[in-house]
Amino acid sequence: MVQGKIRVLVGKPGLDGHDRGAKVIARALRDGGMEVVYSGLHQTPEQIVETAIQEDVDVIGLSILSGSHMTVFPRVKELLKAQNAEDIIVIGGGTLPEEDIKELIEGGYATALFTPGTPTDDIIQWIKDRIIQ
């Protein structure tokens, strides 16, 4: 059980600038009652993990549309482990093919992945269910 508001870092790793989804989600989570930090663009996994720890977030949500998800998610997990911050839940969204989603979830690199068309309320509910148990 988390005291106070749920804290989420919306992270935008990689070199691309497709931040529409990240911003819509950030705003929806904020409207859904969470404290939201948006990393801004062009972040490395190192920068994202550093921000997540500094901001003491409960959840990292990664938005990836550049096809680099198979390298970014494992890297973020690895860095969290190295920092003893594995309690931070990693979720994500973007252009993610079905079989990659399966591999990332089964490999434990992400707890949940949301594809285009997912209602923002579903994501809010998922986070709340997961954190406030």
Partner: peptide, 22 residues
């Protein structure tokens, strides 16, 4: 690809995982 668009060569650390992707 994104590294070319952002002015990085393929062997730059920031290009890792993004070479030839998009």
């Amino acid at each position: 690809d994104m590294p070319t668009i952002m002015g990085y060569d393929s062997d730059h650390p920031r290009a890792y995982g993004e070479v030839g992707r998009v």
